[in-house]
Amino acid sequence: MTGLEIEITQKRFPAVGNAPPLLVYRSFRLSVEPGTFLCLLGPSGIGKTTLLNMIAGLDSDFEGRIVFHGRGTPRIAYAFQSPRLLPWRTLLENLLLVLPSTSEARERIEILLQEVGLADAAHVYPERLSLGMQRRAALARAFAVEPDLLLMDEPFVSLDEPTADRLRDLLCRLLERHPATVLFVTHDSREALRLADRILLLEGPAPAQIRRDLTVPMSREERRDKAQIEALHQQLLTS
């Protein structure tokens, strides 16, 4: 597990066509304790995905620094908004690709596929599966690398609510077995309450500001109760 210290002096997107340049972050600070499940909650287009991309090293065009606390360089896994599986490789092949090709790796992948309930679909091409199954595979891939830091960008959107809920349960189970620091982006406040230890409420207009920084005082069991979440939602997030 790894903690991280984020300090973004400035992040801007240059003007494209007729759109003016956009200042996404200015003097943005955030520190995350190791093992925290942190939800970034905020409206679309505020720069949540951009923040994850900067942390993942996919976007290095910003002023500031991101420091990881932990031994060596952290192993980072990223569950994107779309599953981003290679359509021309089977599920098993997709997962094997993120690890060096050894027999232990293969064993681990097979166990993981079982854990997410996809053992029977191991040799199926992703596009023949439902979106829910593809997302489970993407989740298994993220855990395959034994991440210190798990970045998740609305990984359960465009699923029906029962399916999304089962996937949230699955995520919690996987995290119990394979602990990691999690940064989870969502615009669904109930989902945030359901999952997070800590919620960061981001607010526009650009540049993004941290409006509130909440700790969620609920146990795993309490979170399964829709009424409890609703009550907390009333108390914390409607004001």
Partner: peptide, 24 residues
């Protein structure tokens, strides 16, 4: 680009990226 980013995050390296992401 999405798949290229995925390959970068999961540290595919040049050869794996070429063979499994680019060439197909």
């Amino acid at each position: 680009r999405d798949l290229a980013e995925m390959a970068r995050v999961y540290r595919f390296g040049a050869w794996k990226t070429l063979r499994h992401v680019v060439l197909p």
